[in-house]
């Protein structure tokens, strides 16, 4: 069984697609980001980053969570209609700074954690750097 099959079975996911850059994208379905983080931690995957992207029109935001397992890059996309998603900082402390950066750059609220300013300073507007509607 390959690494990818193993992860897919662990998460109960059938749909896995490989993009042109070799990232294995898992269709996460209804599973929460915390379920994902717990599963990734259990198989000792290394957290890589979260990429936030503002979708065209008023379609909200997409958060791409990337994890590395033995050199394989695993991707999980979450679509945000509202500006919030559960924090996984308590499960995976490597996400601390990137959650804070996405919070400041895109005004996303990672629910369940406290914030301290990272790149911004006290009193600066959230989302001022990367959210089109706020710029």
């Amino acid at each position: 069984m390959t690494v990818i099959d193993n992860i897919a079975e662990r998460l109960g996911i059938n749909n896995v697609q490989t993009d042109s850059s070799g990232v294995q994208w898992f269709d996460i379905g209804h599973r929460s980001v915390r379920e994902l983080a717990t599963a990734m931690k259990a198989c000792r995957a290394r957290f890589v980053t979260i990429t936030a992207t503002e979708l065209p029109g008023n379609d909200g935001l997409r958060l791409d969570y990337l994890w590395d397992l033995n050199g394989h890059l695993l991707g999980f996309s979450f679509h945000l209609d509202t500006n919030s998603i559960e924090s996984i900082f308590d499960i995976c402390e490597a996400t601390d700074w990137i959650e804070r950066e996405v919070h400041e750059g895109f005004a996303v609220d990672f629910v369940g954690r406290a914030y301290e300013p990272l790149l911004l300073r006290e009193g600066n507007n959230l989302g001022v750097n990367l959210r089109e509607e706020i710029r």
């Binding site: 993009d19 042109s20 850059s21 070799g22 890589v48 980053t49 990429t51 990337l66 890059l73």
Partner: peptide, 18 residues
């Protein structure tokens, strides 16, 4: 149209571009 991710081993470690 799409997103591509690339990684390299920089002197200080992994650099990732999406």
């Amino acid at each position: 149209t799409g997103t591509a991710t690339s990684r390299v081993e920089a002197p200080r470690g992994e650099v990732v571009y999406s």
